[in-house]
Design a protein around this nucleic acid. Sequence first.
DNA 1: GTGCCTTTGAAGGGT
DNA 2: ACCCTTCAAAGGCAC
Length: 529
Amino acid sequence: MPQLDAGGGGAGGGDDLGAPDELLAFQDEGEEQDDKSRGGAEVGAEALGREHASQRLFPDKLPESLEDGLKAPECASGMYKDTVYSAFNLLMHYPPPSGAGQHPQPQPPLHNKASQPAHSVPQLSPLYEHFSSPHPTSAPADISQKQGVHRPLQTPDLSGFYSLTSGSMGQLPHTVSWPSPPLYPLSPSCGYRQHFPAPTAAPGAPYPRFTHPSLMLGSGVPGHPAAIPHPAIVPPSGKQELQPYDRSLKTQAESKVEKEAKKPTIKKPLNAFMLYMKEMRAKVIAECTLKESAAINQILGRRWHALSREEQAKYYELARKERQLHMQLYPGWSARDNYGKKKRRSREKHQESTTDPGSPKKCRARFGLNQQTDWCGPCRRKKKCIRYLPGEGRCPSPVPSDDSALGCPGSPAPQDSPSYLLLPHFPTELLASPAEPAPTSPGLSAALSLPAPWTPPDPPQRPAEYTSATTAISETGNLACTGHLATSRGPSSERKRQSPKARGNWPGAPLPPAQGPGPGDFRGCTTSA
DNA sequence: GTGCCTTTGAAGGGT
DNA sequence: ACCCTTCAAAGGCAC
C-alpha cells in the first residue's frame, strides 16, 4: 500500500484529499481482495462500460444508490475495486449530473495523449499541474508535445479539471463514444465529493465516496435489483460461462489473454522527480537544443540535485498528493499490477550473468554500479551511443559530455577532464580496475579522484514531516546545462543500501553522494561482455 | 512495432 | 531491516 504520510502530511498542509482514516478504510477494503476475485471483478468492470452505456440511455433505470451495489454481497470481494477503476474512467467521460453544477461544457481533453497506450490510464498529473502551475499560461509546453495535440489554453476555471484522454476511451471495451469527451471537474484538493451530491450512505459508512450515476455500480452487480444481465458480468468467482459460440471459437485461455489485453492499465503515480522532469523537460529542450530523453534526463537529474530543499519539497508534496489521489481513485491498485508489462532487460542480464563469469552484472555487483544502467563492458550497444569512448572503444557517434557541447548555453566542462571522463557511465573497462594501475591521463587521474567527502549542508527547513534532510549535490559548478555528468547519485543498489531513516526520513530525501564508486566514479572493471 | 537509454523515487517481494 | 527489481515520462534511436 502506498505510504501514507505518517506525519499526516496533510495535517498541516491542508491536505483534504481525504482523511487518513478514510483512506485506510478505503484501502483496507481493496486489500482484502485476492487475485481470484479480482479476476472476476475485472470482467465485471469491463461489463460496466457496456452497462454504463445502457444507463446513459435509460437514466431513469439507474440504481438507487451506489452503495447498494457496493454493499451487495457480490461486491464483497473484488468487484468493488475494479469497478471503481472503471467507474473513474466512466466519470471522466460522463457528464456529471446536472445537480452537480459547475460542470463545464465538453472540452477537448487537457491530456489528449495520442501516444498513450490504448489501454492505459493517464497520469494524474493534472493534479500536479494544478498545484504547480498557478499561472496556466506558463505551463510547460511539453505536456502535449509528444502527443502532438495542442493543448488548449487553460483558464483558471479549467485548471482544476481532470480529464481522461480520448485514447483512454479505448480502455473501456464496448463503451459507446460520447459526442465529445467532457471534462470532469476535480477539485485541486481531489474534491470529487465537492462536485457531487453527498452520499446517501448511513453515517459512518465508508461508501460510497462517489455518487455519480456512472458509479452506480449496482446495476452491474448480479443479483442487484437493478442489475441488467450481461454476458461479461461474472460472479466473484471470476469464472464466466461462455456462450456456445464462444466455446467453439476460443478457448478459455485465449479469452483470458484477450481480457488481459483489454484490461485497463493504471499507471503508477508520478514521483517527485518525474513531476519535476515533466515540468522542466521542455525548458531543457529549449535551452539545450536536445531532444534525446536520455541526455535530457541526465541534465534534469543534475538539476534536480541542484534544487533547493524548498523547491524539491514542492515536488515531493505534489507527488504525495498524486499518490493519495491515485490511492483514492484506484483503491487496491498496486504497482505490482503493471509488472511484466514492460520488457525487462535486467532479467535478460541476470540470465546472462549466470553464464558469464565476467558478465556485466557481476562486474556491476563488484563495483556497486547500477545494475540496470551502468555498463561494465565495452559499449555493447550497437546503436548510436551517447557515450564517448576513448581510443578503440569510441562509439560511432560520441555525444559530448558537457551540456554546453550538447547544445546548452553554459560553462564548458572542466578543462582537466576529458569529456569521456565526465560521462556518468563511462565504459569502465577502458579504465583500470581498482587493482590495476591507474591510467596516466591527467584528466583521468583527476576524474578518478573520488568525490570530496560529503558534508551535510546546513540544516534544512523542511516541512514538519520531513526531518534530517540531506542534499546530495556533488557537482562542482554550474549545474544548469553545465558541469560534468558524473552524478552524485549512487547506483540503485547502493543508494538503497541506506535506509530511508539513515538518509533522512522525509519522503524522497536525497542520498548523500556515494562514498564509493558510483556511476560517475569511473572505477575500472576489466571484464567485458 | 518494440525495446533501449537515462534519470529519481516509490513500492513490494525476497532474504 | 535491507536488498533487489520494476515502473513511472520522454523521445530519439536501433533493430
